[in-house]
Amino acid sequence: MKILFTFKIKTSFKQQLKEKYPNVDFIYTTNIDEVALGDIEVIVTDGGDLKSGHVEKATELKWVMVAAVGVDTLPIEALQARKILVTNSHGVHKMPLAESVLAHLLSLERGLPGIYKREAEKNWELDSLPGEVNHSTALIVGTGAIGGEIGRLLQAFHVRTIGCNRSGHASPHMNETIPLDDILEELPQVDYVISILPSTPQTRWIYQPEHFRAMKETAVFMNVGRGDAVKEQYVLDALKHNEIRHAVLDFFETEPLPKDSPFWELPNCTVSPHMSSLSDQYIERSLDIMDINLEKWVAGDQDLINQVDLAKGY
């Protein structure tokens, strides 16, 4: 059995795999085009390097393990046509992304950006009194593992959490849950809108200008999901017209964000360079999931964890 890794991993993990699976031929590369793919059974990738042409060449390919959560960059149709099993690293983003959300909200409410600015200016005087996260209301759009962890942390600060998912089914750490179709009615009641939606046909460009007009003028909009959930121009217009207080944006339509983008200059916008889910523990967590599945695979068990429904996109 040949298994191809298309991203760098630590030498210690390579050694661990070699010792645990002596009959498996592990191949490592950072350029998939340099590898003969004909007899590769498993490909472990961290994202968009796998193309339909690679799937076509990999005639023995049976499983693609994605060391990330999003699978929208994969050649979905080619994988579906071959009925190739795809798993992801669902759950690895939960802790760092939830911490990022909480950090941004606490920073904004407790006035940390102003503290740093006044420190640089050696200015003692406050511009305005800081606020509190305590007893606010957050709408968490997307109630999977990440949304649940965000809800858990916010509830520790006495925040009322409203989850939002397709059907409105009850979700952990949410005081209530609403269906996606009811989001417009809920927006005028909430202080924070936290979007962690994946990129799917159903969620693409889901936020329209009327959504921002429905939000409180004091609301914070945070997109730590995919960039194609909202058009950048809609957020820009909302910020420029003070329809919302602040936006924290971790994803953009074009990345890296161009230097001439007005987002860089807006005082009521925080540009986060696609880093909210990053952590020095990220790869280790992904490889732990891969190891669980690999142990099953080698034993002939294809009931792997984190299987992706390619038709749904998650």
Rank of each mutant, 00 (worst) to 15 (best):
C269I: 07
E255N: 12
K312W: 00
I292G: 08
V55E: 05
E121N: 14
H246T: 08
L108K: 06
Y207V: 02
V24R: 11
K94C: 11
E253C: 05
D182C: 06
G225Q: 09
E77D: 15
K10L: 13
E265A: 13
D260E: 14
A103L: 10
Q202L: 09
Q155C: 01
L278F: 13
I76T: 15
P172R: 14
I43S: 07
G38N: 15
V55G: 00
E41V: 05
E19G: 01
N23F: 02
V235P: 10
I115D: 04
H54S: 08
D303N: 15
A120I: 01
V230R: 14
N223Q: 08
S136L: 08
A145Y: 11
S89V: 03
I27H: 14
E77A: 15
N268M: 07
K57E: 00
G142I: 01
F7G: 10
T270M: 06
N223S: 04
S89D: 02
E185P: 05
L61T: 02
K14T: 07
A81T: 11
H173I: 02
D280C: 09
R110D: 03
R118W: 02
E185Y: 12
I76C: 10
L85Q: 15
G111S: 08
T203Y: 01
K51R: 15
Q16M: 13
A247F: 08
V35W: 07
T45Y: 09
E149F: 07
M222K: 10
M95D: 15
Q281V: 08
L154A: 04
G168Q: 09
S279P: 00
P273K: 02
N306H: 00
E210A: 12
V92G: 04
S171T: 09
R226A: 00
Y282V: 02
T218Y: 09
T161H: 06
S100H: 15
R204Y: 05
T161G: 07
F157M: 09
R110T: 00
D25T: 12
H241F: 01
V86D: 12
L154D: 01
T270Q: 11
K216S: 04
G225A: 01
M275Q: 14
H241Y: 01
A311M: 10
L17H: 10
E109Q: 15
I9K: 10
I162F: 03
D250Y: 10
P267F: 05
A68G: 14
L105K: 10
F252I: 05
A67I: 03
A156V: 13
E253S: 15
D49G: 02
A67T: 01
N268H: 07
L17G: 12
V42S: 01
A103F: 14
I27F: 09
K216Q: 11
I27R: 15
T200L: 13
H93F: 10
D49K: 13
D46I: 05
V248G: 09
L310C: 08
T218M: 06
V235D: 01
G163L: 00
K240A: 13
L61S: 04
I43Q: 06
E284L: 09
I178E: 03
W205A: 12
I43A: 05
P262E: 03
